[in-house]
Computed example of a mutant assay.
Amino acid sequence: MHIIWVLIVGAIIGAIAGAITKTSLGWILNILAGLVGSYLGEMVLGSWGPHLAGMAIFPSIIGAVILVIVASLIVGAMRKK
């Protein structure tokens, strides 16, 4: 049951990051951006603020936003070739 909550929270974090950056990656990539961004955000910024499903919300969102920006820059560069 815990994994379901992690996926749901990861999807929400990824969707928030997509909304902040005005980037649509699709729901699977939103989940991945939320999960990976959460991991990276907590590694760099620490685990502060409110937690949900074992993820610190604010560092997770910041990490996911950065990840979405980097991913969209890479995809944009690949499309130009």
Rank of each mutant, 00 (worst) to 15 (best):
G76H: 09
M78C: 05
S47I: 08
V75K: 14
G34N: 06
A77E: 13
P59C: 13
P59H: 13
V70A: 14
V9H: 05
G49I: 09
V68A: 02
M43V: 14
E42Y: 06
I66E: 00
L67V: 02
K81D: 11
K22G: 06
V65C: 11
V70H: 02
A71G: 06
I61P: 03
V75C: 04
A71Q: 05
W48A: 13
G54V: 08
L67W: 00
S38F: 07
I13F: 03
H51Q: 15
I16C: 11
L40G: 14
I16F: 11
G14H: 07
W5Q: 14
I66Q: 00
A71T: 14
P59R: 12
L7K: 02
A11T: 15
V9D: 06
P59F: 13
G41R: 05
I16V: 15
I31R: 05
I66C: 11
G18C: 07
I4A: 15
I28D: 07
G46Y: 11
V75A: 13
I4M: 12
M43I: 15
L40Y: 08
V68C: 02
A77H: 12
G49E: 08
W48V: 14
M55I: 12
I3K: 12
A11F: 13
I13G: 05
G63V: 05
V75G: 05
I3E: 15
L40P: 02
L67K: 01
L7Y: 06
G18H: 03
L25W: 00
M43S: 13
A33H: 00
G49P: 04
I74A: 10
A71E: 05
K22W: 02
G54R: 07
G41E: 07
I16P: 03
K81L: 12
E42I: 13
A15S: 15
A15K: 10
V70Q: 01
A56R: 03
G34T: 01
I31W: 01
I31D: 00
V65Q: 09
L40D: 03
M78R: 10
V36I: 15
G46A: 10
I12Y: 00
I16N: 03
I4E: 10
G18Q: 01
A17H: 01
H2Q: 13
I4Y: 09
S60R: 05
K80H: 11
G26F: 03
K22F: 03
G18F: 01
G10C: 09
S60F: 07
V68P: 00
G34L: 03
A53R: 05
I12H: 01
V9E: 02
S72M: 08
M78G: 00
I16H: 03
L73Y: 14
M43E: 12
M55T: 04
Y39P: 00
L67E: 00
V9M: 12
N30Y: 02
S60K: 09
V70G: 02
I61E: 03
G41M: 11
I3R: 12
I69T: 02
G26A: 04
G76T: 09
I13D: 04
G41Q: 05
L52P: 04
L7F: 10
V65F: 07
R79E: 14
I28M: 11
P50N: 12
G54M: 09
T23K: 06
I74S: 01
Y39M: 15
A19W: 13
V44N: 06
A53W: 01
I31Y: 02
G10A: 13
V68K: 04
S60C: 12
